[in-house]
């Protein structure tokens, strides 16, 4: 089979541990919120309040918004400080 050239167009980036942590958190939290927290309601309302619905449908979106805002603020601040440059061990060539 004919070989081809990879990496055409533009280069790739290397995800930092912080970015990977954010992604992993969302991948775990997402299904957990959708399945686990909403399921709390199976046991009925807690003191008249449906805790599962409350956490799954109100808490989870707010948590993800905070996660994105926090990540954006952190990454942008780091970039402003020059920490995002192609430093040793970070760039690919």
């Amino acid at each position: 089979m004919r070989q081809e050239t990879a990496g055409q167009g533009q280069g790739t980036a290397r995800p930092t541990p912080g970015a990977l942590l954010v992604v992993a958190t969302s991948l775990v939290l997402g299904p957990l919120c959708a399945v686990g927290l909403a399921g709390v309601l199976d046991g009925g309302a807690v003191a008249g309040v449906p805790a599962g619905v409350l956490l799954g449908q109100l808490g989870a979106p707010a948590a993800f918004a905070a996660l994105v805002a926090g990540y954006a603020a952190f990454a942008n601040a780091r970039e402003r400080r020059g920490g995002s440059g192609a430093g040793p061990g970070r760039s690919r060539r």
Binding site: E4, G11, F74, R78, S91
Partner: peptide
């Protein structure tokens, strides 16, 4: 990608994703 790897990789610059 693993079975049919690229012949060569051009020297494109890269960026590091901060975070």
């Amino acid at each position: 990608s693993l079975l049919w790897p690229a012949a060569a990789r051009p020297p494109t610059g890269t960026a590091t994703e901060p975070g």
